[in-house]
Design a protein around this nucleic acid. Structure first.
Length: 660
RNA sequence: GCCGCAGUAGCUCAGUGGUAGAGCGCACCCUUGGUAAGGGUGAGGUCGGGAGUUCAAUCCUCCCCUGCGGCACCA
């Protein structure tokens, strides 16, 4: 038998007979390691303890202490254990696939009856029994024909289909957890008892299409979460509770920001508080855009289908448009219009009005454009995914040569805005040419390179998103990461040579000839609705004071202080602060609690002492400590703190200049 | 759009084949209280919409709408 050399993480190597398994290797090191071992990494590949090693290799034996491998194995084995439990409870249920996902796993089943929450409890119980059996895990490589025959005989059509879709040169591997068998590429644990029986939980049942295809059968997916220890499961469940507390739908109600109702699904009724946040953010964006060389326009909501036919939306996007038919008495035919789902065709109309010269480019045309899209009902989610929304939309009309410089300028702009809005953590993805596309390879090469170069020139790295570009051009996507680690795509930059051509936009070049401009579709916050939802969840409702709808409540401790409270409110208002008085016949405890729950950044309490001394008792949201400040002092302090970040910077700069 | 679950007072929720209840909030009264809920009284509901079964439906059945969790979608 030939010998192979295995190199361990400490750099030592040892010779073994070819075909040795990591289990044997572990046993050769120590008894306890043999028991504790869960898997190995062989030549960088996660390796089952039972798989033979045929050549020289590096090897590391894993135990439950290796979090990454342990999590993967625990979750993967639980997927199998759950499938086994389900088939033991209901033998006619058909199994499909069950992959590991973030924090857990899922398994898709085909079963006539829907699973109920009580079923989940029963399955969980059965899973714990299986874990306690400590059944060995065993694996074999099978012939395709044998495997197909096996699953055909057992009436498991989904498995047959899976095998048929696996490339012919790949070995088919079978795994047994006790007597229960599943097709699986592995690796797995040594026995079911290696799974911690108290560190997993079945979370939910949901429908999911077979192979993710909406034309195929709907299966039932059971989701579970699992970790290497009980405490980690607890921590995870706690985190979910915390996330639920930040839910913008809940906070939106509690802070009286907005509501939605069934007469206008997917559209927002902004209340005064919410609209204050909205306009504050919009005012900020408007200032930024002006400073960055954009012109602002406004275009119609209801536009005749002719324009949508010309732009291509009628053909490609009709299902997502609100169609508005107007049946005028004296019109022979009714006119058919659509609410605009995007602003770009309208912006081209403005561009086309009057002859443009190359000297006019780049032309940066911005609109806080209200759009309506008929999103599928199942896609709606609070104010994050809606049917009516407003974008900080703009289109930059430019030449091919200007793409790179304009993109760089935009990235810098976006970076400044995100920094002002408190998002330090964001990343860039470059989506490149998809399979179905228009345009030449050379033009794609050129434009993709321009976007990549612009990123680097602006000082940002990007990851590739191959094949995810639009049919007409590549795009940059800017992804924010919020306070609890969730990703949100907000900003975007898309290169579009197609629409200007379709809508016959052109400019006169230096050569005196007509040329089509390129359009860069771009947005920073994306939809205001969604972005405000993100802000609410990011800050758990405690918005930065300049965005907070109610910045200060001046609360009277005794009614003798009422007049003074009103005076304080007036002083704050005069300094541009959103302040209100709370003179209700309630105790100060009650008022403090209510406005704290309402996430008001400043509570200023005034009693006889304050009236006497012309001071206020200041309490900052989230702090227990109060302090006494003079009226002048607190007005100046809050006015400064409530100044939007861009204006604050401008003020600081002006002050510095004045000092010099 | 698809699968499952849900819809009862402004909010959170309990409940029943014989037309409903709590807490909070709201109104009024007492209380003027020093930093996260003082006390009392009261008003408030077509039990999501429609149809059916029944002597009788908020409750059972069917259809629709909306929401929630996923899936699909996000030119």
């Amino acid at each position: 038998m030939s010998q192979i050399s295995l190199t361990f993480p400490d750099g030592n190597s040892r010779d073994y007979d070819a075909g040795i398994t990591p289990a044997d290797v572990a046993a050769g090191i120590s008894n306890s390691l043999a028991k504790k071992a869960i898997s190995a990494t062989v030549n960088g590949q996660h390796w089952d303890l039972q798989w033979p090693i045929e050549g020289d290799a590096s090897i590391a034996i894993h135990t439950m202490k290796d979090e990454a491998q342990a999590n993967e194995l625990v979750r993967h084995d639980l997927a199998h254990i759950m499938a086994r439990a389900v088939q033991e409870l209901w033998p006619d249920v058909k199994v499909t696939i069950g992959p590991v996902i973030k924090d857990g796993w899922y398994y898709d089943f085909d079963r006539e009856e829907p699973f109920t929450p009580e079923d989940l409890g029963e399955i969980e119980k059965k899973m714990k029994e299986i874990i306690n059996l400590r059944d060995p895990v065993r694996t074999e490589v099978w012939d395709r024909d044998v495997a197909i025959k096996y699953y055909e005989d057992r009436g498991e059509p989904y498995k047959v289909e899976l095998i048929e879709s696996i490339p012919g040169d790949e070995p088919l591997r079978m795994y047994w957890h006790g007597d229960w068998q599943d097709l699986c590429r592995g690796p797995h644990l040594q026995h079911t008892g290696q799974v911690p029986g108290d560190a997993f939980k079945l979370m939910s049942v949901a429908g999911a299409y077979w192979r993710g295809d909406s034309d195929r059968p709907m299966l039932q997916r059971i989701y579970g979460v699992a970790f290497t220890g009980k405490e980690k499961l607890k921590a995870h469940l706690l985190m979910l509770e915390e996330a639920a507390k930040r839910d913008h739908r809940k906070l939106g109600r509690e802070m009286d920001l907005f509501h939605m109702q069934e007469e206008a699904p997917g559209q927002v009724f902004w209340h005064p508080n919410g609209w204050t946040v909205y306009t504050e953010l919009q005012d900020y964006m408007r200032r930024q855009q002006r400073a960055d060389g954009y012109v602002e326009v406004n275009t119609p909501q209801v536009v005749n289908r002719k324009l949508w036919e010309a732009s291509g939306h009628w053909g490609n996007y009709q299902e997502n448009m609100f169609i508005v038919e107007v049946d005028e008495d004296h019109a022979r035919e009714k006119t058919i219009n659509a609410l605009k789902p995007m602003n770009c065709p309208c912006h081209v109309q403005i561009f086309n009005h009057g002859l443009k010269s190359y000297r006019d480019l780049p032309l940066r045309m911005a609109e806080f454009g209200s759009c309506a899209r008929y999103e599928p009902s199942g896609a709606l989610h609070g104010i994050m995914r809606v049917r009516g929304f407003t974008q900080d939309d703009a289109h930059i009309f430019c030449t091919v040569d200007q793409i790179e410089a304009e993109s760089k300028k935009f990235i810098e702009f976006l970076a400044k805005v995100y920094a002002d809005l408190g998002f330090d953590s964001w990343s860039v993805k470059l989506s490149t040419r998809p399979e179905k596309r228009v345009g030449t390879e050379e033009s794609w090469d050129q434009v993709e390179a321009a976007l990549g170069n612009a990123c680097k020139a602006a000082g940002y790295d990007y990851t590739l998103n191959p094949g995810e570009g639009a049919f007409y051009g590549p795009k940059l996507e800017f992804v924010l990461t919020d306070a609890i680690g969730r990703d949100w795509q907000c900003g975007t930059l898309q290169v579009d040579p197609n629409l200007p051509e379709r809508l016959e936009a052109h400019y006169i070049g230096q050569d005196g000839e007509k040329h089509h401009p390129i359009m860069l579709h771009r947005a920073v916050v994306g939809s205001f609705e969604r972005f405000i939802g993100i802000l609410i969840e990011e800050h758990a409702g405690k918005l930065p004071i300049w965005l907070a709808p109610r910045q200060v409540v001046v609360a009277a401790i005794v009614s003798d202080a009422d007049d003074y409270c009103l005076e304080v409110v007036e002083a704050l208002k005069a300094a541009g602060v959103r302040a209100e008085a709370d003179l209700r016949n309630e105790k100060i405890n009650y008022k403090v609690r209510e406005h704290s729950v309402g996430k008001v950044p400043y509570i200023l309490a005034c009693g006889n002492r304050e009236v006497e001394e012309r001071t206020v008792s200041t309490r900052r949201l989230g702090e227990k400590q109060t302090k006494t400040q003079t009226l002048d002092e607190i007005v100046a302090q809050i006015a400064a703190e409530a100044t939007p970040p861009d204006l604050a910077k401008a003020k600081a700069k002006a002050a510095k200049l004045a000092a010099e």
